[in-house]
Design a binder for these strands. Structure first.
Length: 375
DNA sequence: AAATGTCACAACCGCCGCCAA
DNA sequence: GTTGGCGGCGGTTGTGACATT
């Protein structure tokens, strides 16, 4: 025989808890401990299901719960852990003292997930998703006006990041969606490539091979064995391999399913430009890099940190072994000066975060590719 | 000022593994 | 060994607050 039912659901109260109920529950648990949730409501004088009491206690009333906005460090940790653990909110919460799984889950769904999507990152796989990108904005954004795009350098890899086929495919797609307005741009782009022999000679956009990526990563971190606290059990090789596959898949995805490209955004505005710069930077940063630096980062290697600081006002956990690329996503660099509370860094709005991202990653685009001609 | 839309989050729902009966 | 409740978990919903039109 099984146990008797924990409670008769009929007649039990549901919905928001009143202060009086909260007080009863807190008083009871502080005096007796929660013990059996089944019997707690009755003993505490509550017309609630034990399950409801447990949730209220664990998600809201527990004294060790840290409330308020998530710090950047916490957000970084969540992203890192999520990339490893997936939607194991309780496991993630176990590594974030004072945060509940429910809170983390909510924060993920309402903030982080949306931001990743906006940046063209699949929040499930953490891999770049070209179909989530707004390519027209990329091509028309300050990216090409800034003359500061140097992704490879930022990544510490010497392989070009953008396949010319991608450029052509993207522009072709754009043309199909915005024939009238963009034909000139596309023609100019292609003509410029043909017209300018240096373009190919300098091989700025030679084909990208995933194995090259891996080699490059290993150049940067030939002995990447140091792991952070969050994923110490996961071998770095796993990340390299997964990253390689992810990157390959990303390219494959783009090439095999180009019609998923989002070409709707022809509007250009500051917000979008800012976002798209971060979109691009994020998209062109192999997930392996993020994982590498987030989870397998070696403090002894050159580089990425140096490169980042060299390329921006990077101001993050640079001296911290736990440096992660997610810092690039969310940690502020300069103005507006973020609020700092107890060593944790906060930014008050989504815009600030996005703005930070855009400021963080300013790339150099070769002069040879003068996008102003196309605008 | 009212209507409508969007966001954030607390709370509920339903499933699953464990284990007491 | 079987049954079914408990506790834990992840997904989803309801609703109040706030923003926009």
């Amino acid at each position: 025989m099984g146990r008797a039912p924990c409670c008769d659901k009929n007649g039990l109260k549901k919905g928001p808890w009143t202060p009086d109920e909260d007080q009863k529950l807190m008083d009871y648990i502080q005096k007796n401990g929660h013990g059996s949730w089944r019997t707690l409501p009755k003993n505490a004088g509550l017309q609630r299901c034990g399950k409801s009491c447990r949730l209220r206690w664990t998600n809201y009333l527990r004294p060790d719960i840290k409330r308020g906005r998530f710090s950047f460090e916490e957000e970084e940790t969540i992203i890192q852990l999520h990339s490893v653990l997936g939607n194991k909110w309780s496991a993630i919460a176990a590594r974030l003292p004072g945060r509940t799984d429910n809170e983390i889950k909510n924060y993920w769904n309402t903030h982080i997930r949306k931001r990743l999507l906006r940046m063209g990152i699949d929040p499930v796989t953490h891999s770049p998703r070209f179909d989530l990108l707004d390519l027209s904005s990329i091509l028309g954004s300050q990216l090409y006006n800034s003359s500061q795009l140097n992704v490879s350098r930022l990544l510490g890899i010497h392989q070009p990041v953008v396949n010319p086929e991608l450029i052509r495919l993207a522009t072709s797609l754009l043309s199909s969606h915005r024939e009238n307005s963009n034909n000139l741009l596309l023609q100019n782009l292609q003509e410029n490539q043909l017209r300018n022999p240096d373009f190919q000679q300098q091989n700025q956009f030679q084909s990208f091979q995933p194995n090259q990526l891996q080699n490059s990563i290993q150049e940067v971190h030939p002995a990447s064995t140091t792991t952070t606290t969050t994923a110490s059990a996961v071998p770095c090789d796993t990340f390299f391999n997964e990253a390689q596959v992810m990157q390959a898949n990303t390219m494959e995805q783009f090439q095999s399913n180009p019609m998923n490209f989002n070409c709707q955004g022809s509007q250009q505005n500051v917000w979008q430009d800012n976002v798209m710069v971060s979109n691009l930077s994020e998209d062109f940063v192999p997930v392996s890099i993020q994982q590498n630096y987030g989870l397998c980062g070696s403090s002894s290697q050159p580089s990425f940190e140096d490169l980042v600081s060299e390329n921006s006002n990077f101001q993050s956990n640079i001296s911290n072994q736990n440096f992660s690329f997610t810092s690039v996503l969310s940690t502020p660099s300069s103005s507006p000066t973020p609020l700092t509370t107890s060593g944790s860094t906060y930014i008050s709005t989504e815009d600030e975060r996005d703005s930070y991202c855009s400021n963080m990653l300013k790339f150099e685009i070769p002069d040879i590719l003068d996008m102003n001609d196309f605008m």
